[in-house]
Amino acid sequence: MQRMVIQRIFIGLVTLWVVSVLVFVGTSVLPGDVAQIVMGQSATPETLAAYRAANGLDQPLYMQYATWLGGMVTGDLGISKAGGASISSLIGGRFGNTMFLAGVVAIISVPLSVILGLIAAMYPATWIDRVLTFGTLSLISVPDFFIATFMVLIFAVNLGWLPAIAHISPEDTMMETIRASAMPLITLIIVVSAQMIRMTRAGILNVMNSPYIEMSILKGVRRNRIIVRHAFLNAIGPIVNVVALNLAYLVSGVVIVETIFAYPGLAKLMIDGVQTRDLPLVQACAMIFCGTYVILIILSDVAAILSNPRLRNPK
């Protein structure tokens, strides 16, 4: 077990490095560089050259990469090439915002989804299962920007209950923070829960078809007990994986929700970085996102192994 975790961490580090090279190369083959994007229509060859020299963009690519990697290893994220702000200051507040959003959504949606998924699996083909299936399928098919815009129209524009934009700052009281972030939270809970409910239900029903469950049915064990004691524990592996992927999505993929609610988070920052070809910024975001995936997947693997002893001794 210990060996496996160490192995996974090592593979994770290698993954991070490979991703950093891919992102670096990927961003640099895009048309235009930071100088051209920042100056846009008002660029001249002289100002472009001056900008490149002032920001170290005139160095060859591999040198820029080496400088970045050296800084990264020593904990220095560098300076944004587009605005001159230090990247740690750009990321700092947003990292907290993103973690707050992802954390609250996870705390609410994970138990909610697992419980609702369990209920749907316990009573398949009853009205409650049908309502849940219909509800989750509809919500999975509706894009998140639609849910978000729709909620803004109802709760902010028509009813005036909640603010249309999610401004949170450290000075706000608890109540203000909850009010300001209510709509993005609800939107994200709806989006991620629907998928997790369906996966929980499918995972459990899948296990329900295995011979050992049939055996316990024949022995006369009650269905609810079978599901909670036998099926659920065996289904934890796939469920935890879906949960991990959804949590990683909450950290890296909620750009639309961030845009609609003007919520300053990391996903939008990375898009801005790509649009301005700001390599160090893109890199720093990519490392955070990739790191999140690696950590969450290691955790979900560990959880799967803990819940299923058979996985501890792979053949």
Partner: peptide
């Protein structure tokens, strides 16, 4: 001073009185 990059969201924020 800030920006709301989505034009629909920006209009909604004005209509709801947030900006």
């Amino acid at each position: 001073i800030f920006a709301i990059t989505d034009k629909v969201a920006r209009t909604s924020a004005l209509l709801s009185g947030d900006i």
